[in-house]
Design a protein around this nucleic acid. Structure first.
Lengths: 228, 228
DNA sequence: ATGTCGATTTCGTGC
DNA sequence: GCACGAAGTCGACAT
């Protein structure tokens, strides 16, 4: 990885065009040829960048007045291109980092779904699982179950429940209820947190809302699938 | 901005839990207290990070064996926390970057909309523009036009057409068709790329799909509205 | 402050 | 490899 602190201007041309006026920034060049241009603020997204795979070529001649060198970062797969005009170079170091073992995550929607499928009675006594990821023409229903009365239940699962999730579940219910083998199908919107507007919309459409306690569910599930 | 190259392990606890095993990485500390942890590959997204505003505290005592120092990065607004155990420090520099003037863009959905409005006959001969951003009670219709038969057409425009866009257009059509001065109103879903599931849903609802070629449209449009 | 929507999204997963 | 959905999404803009 090469780290350069430089006063520079940047032009990107690819799926769109973009321009960065002259300022001092960090230029990060990774081993795969990708380049990230960071300012000293904002979040993790760079001001501009080139995704890998890419190649960096440095030009020293035929440049505009005041430009020390021009970096041409060319994507290897598309014709996206990044032009960096370097006006002043304050820092330039290279470091050998090696390959990273990568991130281990816990607590995303997939974990919630697995836990809820294992503990489907959380939703009510007599509930039984039909299957996870029940595929339809318009996408997969997170969980399909049967309640104590034998009625089919479509469950939409979110970490954070907002209106989009209710819309999604509504579409599934509309489609599933056209299937005489399944109909009538009721819906349950389950999330760690459900926003008031989403709850109102769901209730209005006859969809039940359930708030899930991830920590409690993980506590019940005594399998040895622990991170730490 | 402070740049550190260090062998480290990282634990994040906040909206989820995540862990990075020991490896050599770049630790970037920005002026607003945000921290980015980058490996020498991948795209612009860091392996792990803390969004601003945040504060960095460095501990030197009571650490595990082999740990030189522990960084505690605490979000100022939430209880999200990042723990970085530094095992070896290879590089540590600080740089004054100043405030960045920011990015100037061209070629996003707004530009597509302007182009399509100018070249409304792309959608069919005899088409004429009524107006862009036709405001309704539930939001603006991207483009309202009239086809060769004089029928009103509501056009929803996306760079990438997925199901959400079809839902949006459906709501507009429902509303517009209640207006006797406009009804009947047909819909066109126009995008640079339309996903199969979105196409299925649109077709099912009697909405036409059109794929747009932005480069061709930009070529036809000979106006001098260029950035550079 | 809050909600909504686009993005050069990136990232994982299933087929 | 392609397509789709989630994200600790981020960011911009309107209310």
């Amino acid at each position: 990885m090469r780290l350069v602190i430089a006063r520079c201007s940047v032009d990107y041309e690819g799926r769109l065009k973009a321009h960065l006026p002259e300022a001092t920034r960090l230029l990060m060049v990774k081993a795969d040829g990708s380049v990230l241009i960071h300012s000293d603020g904002g979040s993790y997204k760079p001001l501009n960048w080139m995704s890998p795979p890419a190649t960096l070529r440095v030009l020293h001649e035929g440049l505009d007045d005041g430009v020390i060198e021009q970096w041409v970062v060319q994507s290897a797969k598309t014709d996206d291109r990044l032009l960096i005009n370097v006006l002043e170079n304050f820092h330039d170091t290279a470091h050998d980092l090696g390959v990273d073992p990568g991130l281990i995550k816990d607590g995303v929607e997939a974990d919630l779904q697995r836990l809820l499928a294992d503990q489907i009675e959380t939703l009510g006594s007599g509930f039984s699982l039909i299957r996870r990821e029940y595929f339809t023409a318009i996408g997969p229903v997170d969980i399909l179950a049967r309640d104590a009365n034998g009625t089919t239940v479509a469950i939409e699962l979110k970490r954070r429940g907002d209106i989009d999730g209710v819309e999604q579940l509504t579409r599934y219910l509309e489609l599933l209820n056209r299937d005489p083998l399944l109909a009538p199908v009721r819906g349950i919107f389950a999330a760690q947190q459900i926003k008031p507007q989403a709850r109102v919309l769901a209730t209005d459409r006859g969809i039940d809302c359930v708030t899930l306690d991830y920590d409690a569910m993980r506590g019940v599930d005594d399998s040895a699938s622990r991170l730490f």
